[in-house]
Design a protein around this nucleic acid. Structure first.
Lengths: 211, 211
DNA sequence: GCGCATCCCCCTCGAAGGAGGGATGAAGAC
DNA sequence: GTCTTCATCCCTCCTTCGAGGGGGATGCGC
């Protein structure tokens, strides 16, 4: 009679305290074991190559290489890699980007042990794991159109408070073109003005505030 | 020869995982002990009354009663209460509000055990604990003026993307007065337009995005 | 061919923002 | 008591900017 093999886990989060919590939570669970910890995306990729864990528990928003970039890189190295994304945010765009990058699961940081442990087992076993509330957000996302790369460029400048002319200079286009992009942005996000566009984009996780 | 008495700690954070991390970190340290956990501000006040811990380790941003509200309430109950604020954010306003509410220390969530444990000992012993990078942010804050309550009302409506007339109706004042407040806001935050005002206020932690 | 992203231009009108001018009431200094 | 300060409120004039309505052009992928 053989015991089932342990699930070897790589924990990735930029906050030391969160890593301690995850490790404590996981290592008290029979059948699960943390084999490595990374404090950022670059280190996550390196440790993945060195350790080849059965599952990566990855924070989404980190300074430097983000969680979904790291996930993409890891899945290029090993298409069968299993990634469970962990995030404090439930913005539509965050969730979509995580799954797009190849994560098989998405768990919110407000999760308790009873939420997290089954998610780990499920993803390690090759199944997908999307909590109901997350799935709902993902569906609601489809109700508005996808922004183009250029529109997101403009949006980022908008969030810095630049005027149309300034954005035009920065992006090397004419003010007219900037206004055209802005028109598309307002239409796609279904908002009335630039301020609403910025707050809507921040809430949905399309852009972030630059420090 | 008597051993020094244990420091009894109440841990407050809305994220279960973070609480696990903090408890694991603290309980492995001799002389420190977690005697209670709260997942929000209301529960924190209740548990403080029941447990009378030597120190409260409090998350700043929580849904419902925030960390600084809870701190204020706790210090009304016991002026000698010791609170160490824990925050993921280093916005000037967050730091100032925490100290204003009566916290004796402020530690960032990116802190490691080596950062956190001395902070706990210091605050429990009645000393103040402000990391250098936090103190720097606090000083830079003094370089711009304090907003009035009404200006912050207007700012919150601005962040929702409302026009001056809409803000005026909402707050029950004339559009002219709204524009006056806006002028003060722009001057005090030293920005050129409403969009910059919103992003600046978000970065400094003066306002938050409403979900 | 088509669709789509990107780019450029014109016009119009209302909103935003910058400059003034005041009035009131509460708080604190003297 | 007065005087000052400050937050709050209201108003006018003026200029620029933002936003929405058109019209096109190019290049790319399918």
């Amino acid at each position: 009679m053989s015991t089932p093999p342990e699930v070897r886990i790589l924990v990735v989060d930029d906050h030391y305290i969160v890593r301690v919590g995850l490790v404590a939570l996981i290592n008290t669970e029979p059948g699960l074991k943390v084999v490595g910890e990374a404090d950022g995306g670059e280190q996550a990729v390196k440790l993945f190559q060195a350790l080849r864990p059965d599952l990566v528990l990855m924070d989404l928003r980190m300074p430097g290489t983000s969680g979904h970039e790291a996930t993409r890189l890891i899945r290029q190295l090993a298409a069968a890699a299993r990634v469970l994304m962990l995030s404090a945010f439930d913005g539509d765009e965050d969730i979509h980007a995580a799954l797009e990058a190849g994560a098989q699961g998405y768990v919110l940081k407000s999760a308790t042990g009873e939420d997290l442990i089954p998610a780990i087992h499920a993803v390690a076993a090759g199944r997908r794991w999307i909590p109901r509330e997350v799935a709902t957000r993902l569906k609601s996302r489809q109700t508005y159109e996808q922004l183009t790369a250029r529109e997101i460029d403009v949006l980022n400048q908008l969030a810095r408070g630049l005027a149309n002319k300034e954005i035009a200079d920065k992006l090397g286009i004419s003010e007219y073109t900037t206004k055209d992009h802005l028109k598309s942005i307002l239409a796609k996000l279904r908002v009335a003005d630039r301020t609403q566009a910025v707050t809507a984009a921040l809430q949905r996780g399309i852009i972030r505030l630059s420090p």
